[in-house]
Structure formats: structure tokens, C-alpha cells
């Protein structure tokens, strides 16, 4: 995927098997979300294809969802002024086909389809534990529940593969653990999960395989142990020592200078 002269993601070959949880990690700006956007058709890849169950997917988001790949967003993109139930019902869009005419004529088929959709949506809300809030507006939910609702909305399209873009961003440890349970529960339904995450403990606990993306290229892929032991990964995250590494003498010099500066500016610091 190229944006003008900038190559954001380059020749990343990647496979997710059925019923697998795969983690995708990498430093900021590595191209993880861009890769997601290519998969889901939000970006049209400059080169390469995305195939699902053997068929090549067209780069159109709604067709990708139709085929069975659903996603969540890094910054929550719920329909803020719709209720919790309505949000999930929108997710059912691809699995229902009542058009304008059936809505206007309101035949028995329409009522049946609406009823079935609502039942399915309520099942999903039970599953993530938001059933008691069905009539609340999405914008009024606490942050963690908004994340959950986004997952429920994605699940409503009955995907075979669920893409989660940083599902635990901004969550406290307890909520993160709950999300972990949720992802396992989703996998138990037979849905494969591909997730982007910065919380390493979360990723390595959860994933069957982990892939590392650095500067748009796939560095390494394998089980948690393999990735954790890989030196290139550590280097990408922490940086490498370089030749002109400051020695102890220089460090002492800097410390002395800082101490002197501190003495003069201590009053200022307190005022702040």
C-alpha cells in the first residue's frame, strides 16, 4: 500500500486459519491500522489481494463485511445517537434483505424479519452483557462498554473473521481481563480473531500466533515464545545501542549540569 511516495505497508503475506487468534503488534506508525484498512476494503491496496475462504475480496467495505470479515475501530466509531439495540441492528444489515418496499408495505415477512433481527441482536447483547442497556444511547455508555458494544455490532454481521483494532486501548486492568475472556468466548463460537494491540501481556496471553510489523514490513511471525525471544523485535521496540554510546564520564557531566540547573530553577518548578 503506497500513499504517493510513502510506502506504508510492503509485501506483507499473512494468513489467519479458522478458529485461530492472531495478534498483530508493532511500534506506532508501523502500518498495522493501514494493513487493517486494506483488509477491510477501506483502502484499495496498490498491489496485492485479500482472499477469504479461497475467494478474492473486492476492495469495497460492505462487500468485505458481506463476505464475512467484520471489524472494530481504533477510535470507537459507534453510531453515537442511536440506541444500543439499534447499533447492533445496523450490524445485522448484511444478513437481512428487507428493502424499501417491504418497509412501506409492512407485510408479514417484514415483521418476521424485524423480529428475528431483534432477537439475534438481543442474544448478542446478552453475550457481551449489555442487554439491560438496550435502550440507552450509545454515547451515554461508559468507555469500556462502548468498546464491547462495538464488538457486538461487528459480531452481528455473523463474521467468520473478526478484526479488532486495539480492543483494550484506554481500559483499566480489570476491563482488559474481561476483554480477554470475551475474545476467548468469541473464538469458542468458531470465529477467528485478528487483533492489533499494544498491551503485550494481553497479546501474548491470548494469541496462538503473533506477527510483528515494523515500518510496513513483516519482521517475524510465530508463537509467543518465538516472537518474544527474537532480538530484532526487541530492537524495534527498545532501539539498538549505537557506536557513540555515552560513557560514564559523560553521564556524570550531564548529571552535574542538571543539578546546577535545578538549584537555580527550583522556585519556578514549585510554582508550577
Amino acid at each position: 500500500m503506497r500513499f504517493g511516495g510513502l510506502t506504508a505497508v510492503r509485501s506483507v503475506d499473512f494468513t489467519v486459519n479458522a478458529g485461530e487468534i492472531v495478534g498483530l503488534i508493532g511500534p506506532n506508525g508501523a502500518g498495522k491500522t493501514t494493513f487493517f484498512n486494506c483488509l477491510t476494503g477501506l483502502y484499495v491496496p496498490t498491489e496485492g489481494t485479500v482472499s477469504y475462504k479461497g475467494t478474492v475480496l473486492p476492495p469495497k467495505p460492505h462487500l468485505v463485511t458481506q463476505a464475512g470479515i467484520a471489524r472494530t475501530f481504533q477510535n470507537i466509531r459507534l453510531f453515537a445517537n442511536m440506541t444500543v439495540l439499534e447499533n447492533v441492528l445496523v450490524g445485522r444489515h448484511t444478513r437481512t434483505k428487507e428493502g424499501l418496499w417491504s418497509a412501506l408495505l409492512r407485510g408479514p415477512g417484514f415483521k418476521k424479519a424485524e423480529h428475528a433481527s431483534e432477537e439475534r441482536a438481543m442474544e448478542l447483547l446478552e453475550f457481551i452483557g449489555l442487554a439491560h442497556k438496550r435502550d440507552h444511547l450509545a454515547r451515554n455508555l461508559p468507555y469500556g462498554e462502548q468498546r464491547k458494544l462495538e464488538i457486538a455490532r461487528a459480531l452481528a454481521s455473523e463474521p467468520g473473521l473478526l478484526l479488532l483494532d486495539e480492543p483494550t486501548a484506554g481500559m483499566n486492568p480489570q476491563e482488559t481481563r474481561a476483554t480477554e475472556e470475551l475474545v476467548f468466548a468469541i473464538r469458542d463460537k468458531g470465529i477467528a480473531v485478528l487483533l492489533i494491540e499494544h498491551d503485550m501481556r494481553f497479546v501474548f496471553n491470548l494469541s496462538d500466533r503473533v506477527a510483528v510489523l515494523v515500518q510496513g514490513e513483516k519482521l517475524v511471525e510465530g508463537t509467543s515464545e518465538v516472537v518474544q525471544a527474537d532480538e530484532r523485535v526487541i530492537a524495534a521496540y527498545l532501539g539498538e545501542p549505537f557506536e557513540g554510546d555515552p560513557g560514564e564520564a559523560e553521564a556524570a557531566e550531564v548529571e552535574a549540569a542538571e543539578a546546577a540547573a535545578d538549584a537555580t530553577s527550583s522556585t519556578k518548578g514549585e510554582a508550577k
Partner: peptide, 23 residues
């Protein structure tokens, strides 16, 4: 008050998310 009406409102609220939901 139907599937199509909900998708209109979804489009109005957030078009990118709506298309990603299969609309």
C-alpha cells in the same frame, strides 16, 4: 422505522463505520 431507515441514520452518524458494517 425499518432496516433501510436505520441504515440512513447510520450513514448520517458515521459513513465510514456504516460501510464497514456492511451498508
Amino acid at each position: 422505522d425499518s432496516r433501510i431507515g436505520r441504515s440512513w441514520i447510520a450513514i448520517r452518524e458515521d459513513e465510514t463505520a456504516a460501510t464497514a458494517m456492511g451498508i
